[in-house]
Nucleic acid binder design. Structure first.
Lengths: 212, 212
DNA sequence: ATGCTAATTAACGCAACAGTTAGTTACTTG
DNA sequence: CAAGTAACTAACTGTTGCGTTAATTAGCAT
């Protein structure tokens, strides 16, 4: 046997910890911090409640770790896009698509962020990790804008932070409020056609805003 | 005495009901449906817990009434804008400003809607009232767009629903995620200058999208 | 092998919380 | 003004849910 030289341990701290985190992510995403049940997390993780307190000390701290991991994940995926390799307009469109696709593929990100804002970001407040990855994120969008300005295809007076917020907003809002939205506007927000239409509208919105 | 012919009653069903609703709005807005405490609502309303169950039957039903009232309020304020009286471009800008100002002045609206979406809109699901007021709302934005197209100042291929969503999104997202936003972007989202800058950016975004 | 450390479990404690019971008191109507 | 009704209150109940206690067992080092 070449791989799997380690025999599968019955007791595996790292694996148990990871299983708890995964189960917690699902539970917090579905019900928010307040609505989540640590008994449910314990059960779904295949561990038991005492393990949660062993590895994470408290429900709130478990939430904090889930949330931080979610931010690290989206920012990592973003960096992996390698937008530098594309012409500014192509890079911008790719970034808008990525943001939309990421929210669709990882709906828990949105719910976790909503829950954290209901709690006024007190869990993220002193996370240095978030600040570090966010700086790189803002810097790379600024780079993209600068490149576009140099090429004469982007307007020169766009604030990268406002642009970031706007690109997130037009996707995020549509998805997080899809339930009340479906009632207010009397249409299914989640059919493939509706999703495609929304993405196209979002690309149009941003392109008109940014391009000269 | 001309007014106040009714002597102030010690027992006043309508007033008590209204006080409970007002206290519930504050509590639900601050903590969401799950995080709200009916003991707190009772205390802050100056009534007591039994009265809540007398007038509203359950915590969930109380939430439903608070939420419906919130929708009625924003849609009424919107209708009162009387956008028909303005030229299309002016009307559009006034509407964008209104949306922003309403969210700022009534932050509980955002939190209530967030909470309802966490619960997949099950409380609004069979509210006929919401559907009725929403239809008028969508119709009047469609009227505005049509007027602009007739005047040759708006693009002809804008979907009123997508526009509605987008105008809400760019204000709503900024405000609801202002806590995590302040950390990620390392700036205070709520200074007068920041608010003004965001509103200007939003107006620019929509104008570029809609105008020919 | 033996003893030590860390992983794991079941069962429990206790506070918080939604909802109720069992009344008392103000107002209204005939 | 008497009797009925509706507003109102305080104290209580059963359950849920976070966090712990106390004990068991697997893996590892000497």
């Amino acid at each position: 046997m070449t791989a799997q030289t380690q025999k599968p341990k019955i007791r595996d701290a790292e694996a148990t910890r990871a299983r708890i985190l995964a189960a917690a992510k699902v539970e917090f995403a579905r019900f928010g911090l307040g609505g989540a049940r640590v008994d449910t997390i314990a059960e779904n993780s295949g561990a038991n409640k005492r393990m949660i307190y062993h590895y994470f000390d408290s429900k709130e701290n478990l939430f904090r770790e889930v949330l931080e991991a979610a931010y690290v994940d989206i920012r990592s995926a973003e960096q992996a896009l390698d937008l530098d390799a594309l012409a500014p307009r192509d890079a911008l469109e790719k970034w808008i698509r990525f943001t939309w696709d990421y929210y669709l593929a990882n709906p828990e990100f949105i719910t976790l962020v909503n829950s954290e804002n209901l709690h006024r970001a007190k869990h993220l407040e002193d996370s240095q990790a978030i600040r570090v990855i966010s700086r790189r994120f803002v810097a790379s969008t600024k780079d993209l804008l600068d490149r576009g300005v140099d090429d004469g295809v982007f307007r020169s007076d766009i604030d990268p932070v406002q642009l970031n917020i706007t690109i997130a907003a037009i996707g995020y809002y549509y998805l997080t409020n899809r339930f009340t939205g479906s009632i207010v506007f009397e249409r299914d927000f989640m059919t493939p056609e509706a999703l495609e239409e929304r993405l196209a509208f979002n690309i149009e919105t941003i392109m008109r805003l940014v391009c000269v």
